[in-house]
Design a binder for these strands. Structure first.
Length: 418
RNA sequence: GGAGAGGUGUCAGAGUGGUCUAAUGAGCUGGUCUUGAAAACCAGUGUUCCGCAAGGGACCGCAGGUUCGAAUCCUGUCCUCUCCGCCA
């Protein structure tokens, strides 16, 4: 959530920001009204508590217990009534403020939707084939690597079995990735694949709504994570970190589960949009003054990984309307996927500034007092989408697939199908 | 899954209804002393909300409840530990 004090002091700015995000600014105005009521009721409650405390303090010296009891009861009833009132106001207050999006950074281009995102650069050679190419679904069948039919039978549509070289490929990518990131100073982590609702809500993954992502466990306050971002943000929840320990740079491996409700389209076939995949994620806790530099570092690492894997890609800077509610700035890497003859997203990195940190109460002790840390995340490698790129881009005329040089030591051979 | 014990400040740990504004010890910061250090001594040392401030409110795992008054009593819940069961 945003800093309530900031909204109170800068209502016009927040309204403008909210509008640029494509969110109805009415939510800000309504929140401001509720906030006024909230503060007023809180002041009343504090006043009553003060009376209660004074009475309790003098109570032990009292001789007239009858009067003491009477007076205390009266205060108690008044407190109860204000508290009941506060419960409702606070609920509304919270719902409203959670719908106010983060403040985007001044560098962010203003725009309505994905069409207004800015392409910063294109890197790498788009492959040129002199034969009829196959997509990864055909290639997966051909090499007995992917079985979507079995996935559908056992778990439902958009689940799959990885077999043979697809298994080797997934593990090779992870092994390659963790070695790469460890050398860059990231601490390796394997996280739980489930988290309590507080953490997927606090990171901005609502379980309900039009594009519900989270699978929840019936009868428990537990859900399958959509990304390790959820568990990595939870890792330091409610902590006050030491400034000298920052930045904390993590490389986290987890499975990711997404309902993808309503997300059908021309690119939802095969491995591109699935309910479960494995991901190596970068996650950084940073001092506020360093978070922009950290964000650039994550982007650089993402590009280095793509280049090491010989993946042609382009870098997109998200416009204000395509940032979502949480990010203050966001870049996507899109890789060339020969099978679709188009680019497809393979990484996304967001700076959330202190937005998530405020939700999850993560601060840092500085000389000027405690402040919220800045939290950043970025994909290193997704083992559903990278194999699409490798299979489709590096396929040969005879259907064999060349493994990128950097991956060969981990994969164990130079070609699939030879 | 069952039985038991426990969750208090940076840490250890006392506190079983009003004197808790939470003992004591350790740590940390500053000071005195010292050539320097150690020791000793003195002072300070959590978080959060409203407020320019003065001041006031909240926080003893969390949520409810009892009471004029709760760290303390009751209920629920989460977590940790020990033992049993099951199990990779």
């Amino acid at each position: 959530m945003l800093n309530p004090k900031f909204i109170r002091n800068n209502p016009e700015l927040v309204i403008k920001n909210t509008t640029e995000r494509g969110v109805d600014p009415k939510v800000v105005e309504t929140w401001l009204e509720v906030d006024k009521k909230f503060m007023e009721a809180q002041a009343r409650l504090e006043d009553l508590n003060q009376q209660k405390n004074a009475l309790a303090k003098n109570g032990k010296e009292s001789t007239d217990f009858e009067a003491l009891r009477e007076e205390g009861k009266k205060i108690k009833e008044a407190i109860k009534s204000v508290e009941d009132e506060l419960v409702n106001i606070e609920l509304e207050w919270n719902q409203l403020i959670n719908n106010i999006p983060n403040i985007h950074r001044p560098e962010v281009p203003i725009g309505k939707n994905e069409e207004d995102n800015i392409e910063l650069r294109k890197v790498g050679e788009i492959p040129d084939f002199d034969f009829e190419i196959k997509d990864h679904i055909e290639l997966g069948k051909m090499h007995d690597m992917l079985d979507f039919e079995a996935g559908a039978k056992v778990s439902g549509s958009q689940f799959y079995f990885l077999k043979n070289d697809a298994v080797r490929l997934e593990l090779a990518l992870l092994q390659f990735g963790i070695n790469f990131l460890e050398k860059k100073g990231f601490t390796l982590v394997m996280t739980p694949d489930m988290a309590k609702s507080r953490f997927y809500l606090g990171t901005g993954y609502a379980p309900k709504g039009d594009e519900a992502q989270i699978y929840e466990i019936d009868g428990e306050d537990l859900g399958l994570i959509a990304t390790a971002e959820v568990t990595m943000a939870g890792l330091h929840a409610d902590e006050i970190l030491k400034a000298e320990d920052l930045p904390l740079k993590y490389a986290a491996v987890s499975h990711c589960f997404r309902k993808e409700a309503g997300a059908y389209g021309k690119y939802s076939k095969g491995l591109y949009r699935v309910h479960q995949f494995t991901k190596l994620e970068m996650f950084i806790y940073s001092l506020p003054e360093h978070s922009e530099a950290m964000h650039q570092e994550i982007l650089r690492v993402e590009e280095e990984l793509a280049q090491a894997l010989e993946i042609p890609y382009r870098v997109l800077e998200m416009c204000s309307g395509d940032l979502g509610a949480i990010a203050s700035r966001k870049y996507d890497l899109e890789a060339w996927m020969a099978g679709r003859n188009d680019y497809g997203e393979i990484t996304s990195t967001s700076n959330t500034d202190d937005f998530q940190a405020r939700n999850l109460n993560i601060r840092v002790k500085t000389d000027e007092g405690n402040e919220y840390v800045h939290m950043l995340n970025g994909t290193a490698l997704v083992t559903s989408r990278i194999p699409i790129v490798i299979m489709e881009n590096f396929q040969q005329k005879d259907g064999t697939i060349r493994i990128p040089k950097a991956l060969v030591p981990y994969f164990g051979k130079e070609y699939i199908g030879k």
